[in-house]
Structure formats: C-alpha cells, structure tokens
Nucleic acid binder design. Structure first.
Lengths: 145, 145
DNA sequence: AGTTATAAATGGAATTATTCTAATTATTAA
DNA sequence: TTAATAATTAGAATAATTCCATTTATAACT
C-alpha cells in the first residue's frame, strides 16, 4: 500500500513537481504525505522508518533525494536547530521555531507581519536577504510536559 | 611562541575560567586569542590550523575541548548556519548573523532593544526561551564582493 | 501497446564534522 | 616536591549526510 495524498494536496504536489519538469513518483508522494500527516517536524531518519511501512523497499538515499526535491519545489521547509539532524516542516507561512530542551519537541510560532518587517529591517544596506530564520530554545509548554 | 592576550582580555579570560574552577591553559588562551583576533567567525578547522602556528603539538580534540570550555564560560558563542560547520564568535552582545551565499562570509548584525523585545514577545505563554537565534542568508555587501 | 530516452531509486561505500577513549602530560594545592 | 586532579593527545568511533554505479520506473513517441 502506498501513502495517498488527499485530492487538494495531491494537486499541489504534482503541480509543483511538474512545473520544474520533475516526476511525481510514489516515493515522493509518500515522503510528502508523511510530512503533512503528523506535522511533528520529523528527521530524515524518522521519515525513513515511516516510509518503510508503506514502501518497504525504500532506501535512505531515496528519502534524502525526495526531501531535497520537495524542498527545492518549495513544498516543505528544512528546520535546523544547532547541530541536530535536519527536520522537515510543511508549514510554509512565515514562522519561527521553539525547541524544548527537555522533550526535544519543536513547536511552530507564528510571526506577525509587524515583527517580521522589523526583523527584515535589521538587514543593512547593500545586503539582500533571501532567507530569514528565527529560533528559540528553552523549556516548552509546561502544560504538555 | 604562544598566542598572548592583551591584558584586559587576559583578565576576563582567566577570571571566567577560574570562576568555574577551570584552568587557564596556554591552549585555551591561544584558541580564545585566535577567535578575538580576526573576528571572522572561524570554524573549528580554521582555528585548528591557526593554533598550530603557535602550538604545533595541538590536537583537534584539544581545539574542540577548548571551544566547548570557552562556550561554557560564556567567553565565545557558537554560530550555526544550516548544516555547515559550527563557527565561533567573540561578540557577546545580542546580534544576528548574515551569511553571504556567494562568499560564505558571515556578518554580525546588531539587534536594537525594541526589535529584540518584540521577537521575545512571540514566545507563547508557558514557554520559557533561554536562547534566541536570528539569522539571514542571501547576498552580502555588494561593495565588498 | 512497445520502444526508447531520461529521470529516479537503490545499496553500499565514502565523507565530514564531531565526540569518545585510554594513555600521557601539565597544573595546582598542600 | 609530591600527590591529586584536570587537561591534552592521537587515534578510533559515531552520526548525519552525500556520492556512486547500477537497476528500475516514468514519460514521450511511435
């Protein structure tokens, strides 16, 4: 059994790939579906084991390849916190991340327009920011811990 | 020949270490001096080769050990951009980093109090941020490139 | 449908930054 | 000056990721 995207996601998925002349393979669909599914910022390793349940023949290289492709198409984003393994996130709105040092869990934090533009205003003349990255670490939601 | 800190830095250096019951060794002084010297955000690798000029017997493990110690004492800060090697920075004021994708160079960007407090205000109730990290990447200072 | 050209997937080896380990050397306190 | 402890050392180990050569799947064209 393969991991099937629901219709609107499937459309976004194949359109984004086709726009770049790339093929919507079942491995790519599965990886994308898994990232959309739990939204728990899984690592490549996490994704690998989840993909295996649907497509047992999948290799690590494929997971990395798929992730690179999905990132390249703008379908998912990489989240890097310090030197820990890269995590993947389907939330494409401007947001920051908060990592709880106790649980390792990562939370999305929305950034309002005003704060976002202030942050962008920090960039000096002559510099052109393509990417902005804001992250926090500390102790997470006391209620959940 | 060893790398000697100028008097005010040397004092900060040995005080910070002694406060934690750690020894101000020549390797630690050298690593710290090198980070203060060029302020170009060197990697452990960069630091290793620079240290070797002064203390040829120094090993990689020592460089990593020294860096860990210096970070632990709050004398230097780690700068992580994506998955690239960790860089080290003696600037302890609140500041962001800008990485030029063309040259690889990293620039410090000051963060004003107002913007900083707005960023901190993004953290939701129940979360306690110990660390905040803001970084940009894109194309750097056109005049310098 | 069948062929062909090309893109993607695969398994395993290689790479890279970093950490660990056990033995040696240096520093500090008594 | 010695003893206790901390730091350094060389090299092995690890972990995440990338590379490579081969096989398989996909899409375009008969």
């Amino acid at each position: 059994m393969t991991f099937s995207l629901t219709s609107p996601f499937r459309k976004t998925f194949s359109n984004s790939l086709r726009e770049k002349g790339l093929r919507p393979t079942k491995q790519r669909e599965c990886v994308y579906g898994i990232i959309l599914d739990k939204r728990d910022h899984p690592t490549a390793d996490d994704i690998y084991y989840r993909v295996k349940k649907y497509l047992p023949g999948t290799s690590f290289a494929t997971v990395y390849n798929c992730l690179e492709t999905l990132v390249g198409c703008g379908l998912v984003r990489q989240v890097n916190m310090d030197r820990s393994p890269t995590r993947y996130c389907p939330n494409l709105t401007p947001h920051a991340h908060f990592k709880c040092n106790k649980t390792g869990r990562i939370y999305d934090i929305q950034i309002d327009e005003d704060t976002l533009s202030r942050m962008n205003a920090l960039v000096p003349q002559g510099f052109e920011a393509e990417n902005i990255d804001l992250s926090f670490s500390g102790t997470g939601n006391a209620l959940e811990n």
